[in-house]
């Protein structure tokens, strides 16, 4: 497998799906020129992030014209992009779509739409119920949308499902402005480096830039190798295309040197989780609160 990825650190136009679709096609062309096999857009790249009621206006199915336009661009290179997905049951999801050769290969619905502090996603979006790795381009991928990655169960499940490359499309706001880099960026880098090293995977963190309602998204998109090293990162605050090669040899070496994946006792994990699950949700359980 040889894979050149392009992380598109873009600034979507808030609530303007047609304009964003046009920009997606443009970025794909640019990434194609740079030799990319896979072009990764940030979370909700087709709509912008702080949508509130605009979510309703921006919700689309994969059959909608603007969405088709982006999916069609995957004839040039594989694409992962973010959208407000309207399900057949008219539930809105914060989704990421992987398309290849003009077809949808996989769709991930955000499992943990955050609803606390400055976030109110669950007011608008349903919660995804599937966490699966999928095969494409001769490799195996797992998608976590932003907050998904703050729940270690998600990368754990994806790694167990065979993912070698974890993709994290994000819309991470910058705060607080205290240290050399914004606090949220520091926290993110710590998390993705840890995941990459412990799960022996590549992590591709594609974060957006721009300002919405006073909230600044910092960018700083990064590619982390399976040793936990940041091999490439984009500047903060600026639009950018971050191009990097995923090196299969690095995956092999990290997994041979530290075979954590081989030694993982999934049966122990599942048995213990079932025990906890039964206690928490079984007959007569005090549902929900583990304490």
């Amino acid at each position: 497998m040889s894979l050149r990825v392009g992380l598109v650190q873009m600034r979507p136009a808030l609530g303007d799906v047609a304009e964003n679709a046009r920009r997606h096609v443009m970025w794909v062309e640019k990434a194609k020129e740079a030799g990319c096999d896979l072009v990764i857009f940030p979370e909700l790249s087709l709509t912008g992030y702080l949508l509130k009621d605009l979510a309703v206006d921006c919700a689309r199915t994969a059959e909608d014209r603007e969405v088709r336009q982006v999916i069609q661009a995957s004839r040039q290179a594989d694409i992962l992009f973010g959208m407000v997905e309207l399900s057949r049951g008219f539930i809105m999801y914060n989704s990421a779509v992987y398309a290849s050769g003009g077809e949808v290969v996989y769709r991930h619905r955000k499992v943990y739409p955050p609803t606390y502090g400055m976030f109110e996603e669950n007011r608008y979006f349903g919660r995804g119920k599937r966490v699966r790795a999928f095969s494409a381009h001769g490799s195996r991928f797992g998608i976590m949308i932003c907050e998904d990655a703050w729940h270690p169960s998600i990368p754990y499940i994806l790694a167990q499902d065979g993912a070698l490359i974890l993709i994290i499309p994000s819309a991470s706001p910058a705060r607080p402005a205290v240290g050399e880099m914004v606090g949220s960026q520091e926290t993110w880098y710590r998390a993705i480096r840890t995941y990459a090293q412990l799960f022996g995977v590549y992590v591709l963190f594609a974060n957006r830039v721009g300002v919405e309602d006073g909230v600044t998204f910092y960018g700083g998109s990064a590619v982390v190798d399976p040793f936990g090293e940041i091999v490439s990162s984009a500047p903060v605050f600026e639009e950018a295309l971050l191009v990097a090669d995923v090196n299969e040899e690095a995956l092999r070496r990290s997994r041979v040197m530290t075979p954590l994946g081989r030694d993982e006792q999934l049966d122990v994990t599942v048995r213990e989780l079932i025990r906890i699950y039964d206690r928490r949700y079984g007959e007569g359980a005090d549902v929900g609160d583990p304490f």
């Binding site: 910058a174 607080p176 402005a177 205290v178 240290g179 050399e180 880099m181 914004v182 721009g210 300002v211 006073g214 600044t216 605050f237």
Partner: peptide
């Protein structure tokens, strides 16, 4: 209450440019 002045200034400057021109 220490903040990173260079970072805060960069964010406020971009905020102004972005929100005003938008």
């Amino acid at each position: 209450l220490s903040i990173s002045a260079p970072l805060a200034v960069e964010m406020m400057t971009r905020f102004l440019r972005d929100e005003v021109t938008k």
